[in-house]
């Protein structure tokens, strides 16, 4: 318990750095808004090492900070919708026990894109934005798969480290 703040600080810093790294590497999938979601790596690890409450808190804190530093109010709104929906999906998938980290990550990636698309639909008040849905679904599977594989490898290597914050 006494280390909770320290751990949380380290994870917040890591997630922020990964958000920054993602801006540095211009990986373009040819579709607007598609990103690798490197920060989700940290969120996934926290979700597995502690619980969904810590992961949710970290996700929101990270989005707020990254939004104020690199983005604007608009991007915070988008990221929040994606982040919260993504975390909800990942927590539910993880609880079912029948998915590995990769499956949980894929669910998170896809629902993150769906969340952003929903905000876009509300923002421009048109269902035409839904045209991007199939592309965003596939992009979510691909990025979720990649992040899931990496998370799995990291989790395997830090298995002996106890991060239980409760």
């Amino acid at each position: 318990m006494k280390n909770r703040a320290a751990y949380f600080g380290v994870f917040t810093a890591l997630a922020l750095i990964l958000s920054y790294v993602e801006i540095l590497i211009p990986i373009s999938f040819g579709v607007p808004g598609v990103k690798l979601g490197l920060a989700n790596l940290i969120i996934l690890i926290v979700l597995y090492k502690t619980d969904w409450r810590e992961a949710l808190l970290l996700s929101v804190v990270r989005i707020m900070l990254a939004g104020f530093i690199f983005g604007n109010m608009f991007s915070i709104l988008y990221s929040l919708a994606g982040g919260v929906l993504s975390l909800a999906a990942m927590a539910l998938l993880k609880r079912r026990e029948s998915f590995s980290v990769v499956g949980v990550s894929i669910g998170g990636g896809v629902s993150h894109n769906i969340g952003q698309l929903l905000v876009a639909m509300i923002a421009v008040e048109t269902y035409q934005v839904g045209y991007y849905l199939p592309v965003l679904l596939i992009a979510g599977v691909l990025t979720g798969f990649l992040i899931g594989i990496i998370s799995g490898e990291v989790l395997k290597r830090i298995r002996q480290i106890d991060l239980a914050m409760k």
């Binding site: 998915f99 590995s100 499956g103 894929i106 849905l133 592309v135 679904l137 596939i138 979510g140 599977v141």
Partner: peptide, 21 residues
Amino acid sequence: MKKNDWILAVVIVVIAAVILL
């Protein structure tokens, strides 16, 4: 990776493919 991971991925890709088509 478990079997369910693949099922999840394939189902989502199939849904996307159907919408694209």
